[in-house]
Design a protein around this nucleic acid. Structure first.
Lengths: 203, 203
DNA sequence: ACCTGAACACCGTTCAAGT
DNA sequence: ACCTGAACACCGTTCAAGT
């Protein structure tokens, strides 16, 4: 019963923080070399830590990956807020999506895992991930309001599409730009509109 | 030295054909239940065959998958040629792409493997796979000629984008349609054009 | 409260021995 | 010519014992 009555999170012990940092550094090194499927045993070994410690800090490989992407997500959130001030909503959105694709492709085999983290009703993800999503959504909403992005689409779908592009381009540097550009301008814009109109159109 | 001098492929022994068929049936069953990452040992066991036999018939998991998709690829090739006769090139292309996405999503975890089979300079894939690609390419070329598909794009990129969509939608039935529709009409068509024009534009 | 690492279960792949 | 399946190497994950 000191001054503050609700300290939900206690300051972690020094060795715990250190182990966490070592694990992240080791994972970054291993993922960079062997891809997102790298041996977790190897990560622990490289970190100079028992496997159990890795599992305690990051119960699943997915958790480890999200932690590795936290910085990139924070940067994307910042960048999104910055681009909100740009005069061209559509281009701002596309620029941001390009950076998203690059960020989730920073390790081989990473993009598919990002896709599962985007999977509908999951626990919403980490704080940086949510910040990234919110920033992107604002950018997308602005593009919709200016008529440069389709009114009927959901931002989560846009993000999934970008994740799919990142996955498809993962083994071919340079493909990401081409695929994103293709998805940006549309594979068959006129026909797609016709198909939607024929199906009843939006309200 | 009988009448024909160049019989490159000899008729396979009956047990070889039977084992191959059993392996494919078993793999189909396993992949349907456990996804494309199903245990290969389990496939061999279910087929009533030694593991070595599986590896002899299908050296890699990728080979097994391509064999499983052969029928679907043949059907897509047929469908592509059929759609070539339809009066609306853009819609025909989109319809075909929708069927492609559905076909490569028939097993969980299958789409990523299809993406690697689309990977640039690989040995071009199986005969059915090439037939599928050729049919799709004809459909795409026609859409380009009619001005309904972007002139600058390569068909292989269109297919990769579709594969990425299939991957992104794999865990959510119904998402494939939405993502394909989004990619068809474009995330931000006007801005994408502006970006391309600013970059110099096509010749 | 956290860490260690041996133990367990499982899988992919090869290859010597068989038919 | 093809098949079998034991053998090998490796990995993820848990959990009893330690500090």
């Amino acid at each position: 019963m000191t001054s503050d009555d609700t300290p939900r999170t206690r300051a972690p012990r020094a060795d715990v923080r250190r182990n966490r940092a070592r694990l992240l550094a080791a994972a970054r090194e291993m993922f960079a070399r062997d891809g997102a499927g790298a041996s977790l045993e190897g990560v622990a070994r490289l970190a100079g830590v028992g496997v159990g410690t890795l599992y305690r800090h990051f119960p699943t490989r997915q958790d480890l990956l999200e932690a590795l992407l936290a910085d990139a997500y924070d940067a994307l959130a910042d960048r999104g807020r910055e681009l909100l001030g740009s005069p061209e909503p559509g281009r701002a959105l596309l620029a941001w999506l390009g950076e998203f694709v690059a960020a989730v492709s920073q390790f081989q085999g990473t993009a598919p895992s990002v896709l599962v983290s985007l999977d509908a009703e999951r626990p919403a993800g980490s704080r940086p991930c949510r910040a990234m999503r919110d920033a992107g959504e604002a950018l997308f909403a602005r593009a919709q309001e200016s008529g440069e992005a389709p009114a009927g689409a959901a931002f989560l779908d846009v993000l999934k599409l970008a994740g799919g592009i990142a996955t498809a381009a993962e083994r071919e540097p340079g493909a990401a730009e081409r695929l994103l550009s293709l998805a940006a301008s549309g594979i068959a814009p006129g026909a797609a509109g016709a198909a939607r109109d024929a199906a009843g159109g939006p309200g």
